[in-house]
Nucleic acid binder design. Structure first.
Lengths: 221, 221
DNA sequence: CGGCACCGGAGAGGTCGATTCCTCTTCTCG
DNA sequence: CGAGAAGAGGAATCGACCTCTCCGGTGCCG
């Protein structure tokens, strides 16, 4: 059945779908590298499609970015769930997720685009954020319960950490990713509970998800 | 004597000097928050001076930024030297320097501006970078020799770490600094040599100063 | 083979920012 | 005290650049 309902896309229609994928891909890369100010034309160029096609699919730059944010978050959710499912050890799952998120193997794009916050919050975005939160909670709670992750680390720290770790530095994508992973290793070392260290409590309070959503969404205009 | 030579600045001249300080201060803040694309007018606004005055002092935005980079680097050098002088314990000195650099107490500005690399390298910049390197080498070597800092951490990691840690997030300056310090604590925990952990070697190779200077300076045009 | 739906890309119109220019103020000095 | 220098301030200039629209060309279907 499945195929019968929508009909397997063929010809022109198939190209449109492929274009859409390339678009998301390109948008991820470009926004990650240049930030919100990246010219739309650059996205089109990298996707190998014309401006016309891009704007037919998404009515505005903002809509494009919104969609990309959702796709990005869903990708993180998938990576979190996969890590959880494939790694029996809670610490391994946690560490693997962070590494996957940074190297972003699935998408091929070198960086992940939590991107230009300060866009109006769509219902879809809110929903995606909720799913992301749930997934990260699972990951972090699991590690906490296993006693391998320092207790003063919250799940809301994860997106912020990723955002810090993906700081844009003007080197080749490959080297940038390598450096990101290097510093992730450092942070993982600091995150792991060690029975020897006592006085290493974090001094500033953890962020919570309310703070994150304020940070990600425009002040409800 | 001393005063006789230049004459203690008075009146208009004195105001000009004060303006210059405010300018550097404002530039630090604004560039730190908005990045290289920050409008010059915003810097002037925050410094409380007019565009005319700004442009009489610095012939272009680029020159202004260059000077600011030098001032920023010198400030880091001072902080490093101070930490080294005032903290007998190598680890304490190292940690204190990083904390100082992030909270930037001396300047009053909330963030430090390693800023928009990719500007042509002035001789002055090269010299300042060399002094910075020397200071950081001292700090890192001291900790290494004391055996309190993991061996695979290089002095060239310091500027990169700072750059990562100061990732711009759109919250109040105070909260941003708090979060930066939070993640610094995490990294410090990971940086400290612990005799218990073996398998935590960093996977990506350390950066070196040659890489940094490429990253900071425009490809000699 | 004709028509439709879609593609790519040049260009209109508008925003925004670096730099300049001109006016008004504050000192300095004879 | 008045003229002139040295600045201060900020509006106006001159482009650069970007988003989004419009249009001629092309491949696929019947």
């Amino acid at each position: 059945m499945g195929d019968t309902q929508t009909g397997r896309p063929r010809g022109r229609r198939r190209e449109a779908d492929r274009n859409d994928e390339r678009l998301m891909q390109a948008a991820r890369e470009v926004f990650a590298e240049l930030g919100w100010d990246a010219p739309v034309s650059e996205i089109a160029r990298r996707a190998g499609i014309g401006m016309g096609s891009l704007y037919r699919r998404y009515p505005s730059k903002e809509m494009l970015a919104q969609r990309m944010r959702i796709v990005g978050m869903e990708q993180l959710v998938t990576q979190a769930r996969t890590a959880l499912a494939e790694e029996p050890d809670p610490w391994a799952a946690f560490a693997r997720f962070l590494r996957d998120a940074l190297s972003d193997q699935g998408a091929g794009g070198p960086l992940l685009p939590l991107v230009g916050g300060r866009l109006p919050a769509t219902d879809e975005i809110v929903a995606a954020a909720a799913r992301l939160r749930a997934a990260l909670d699972d990951l972090v709670d699991g590690a906490h319960r296993a006693g391998v992750l320092r207790a003063d680390f919250a799940s809301a720290d994860v997106p912020l950490l990723l955002e810090h770790l993906t700081a844009r530095i003007p080197v080749t994508d490959e080297r940038a990713t390598a450096l990101h992973l290097r510093y992730l290793d450092l942070i993982l070392a600091g995150l792991r509970t060690s029975t020897t260290d006592g006085p290493t409590a974090l001094q500033s309070p953890a962020p919570d998800w309310a703070e994150l959503s304020e940070l990600w969404n425009a002040p409800k205009k």
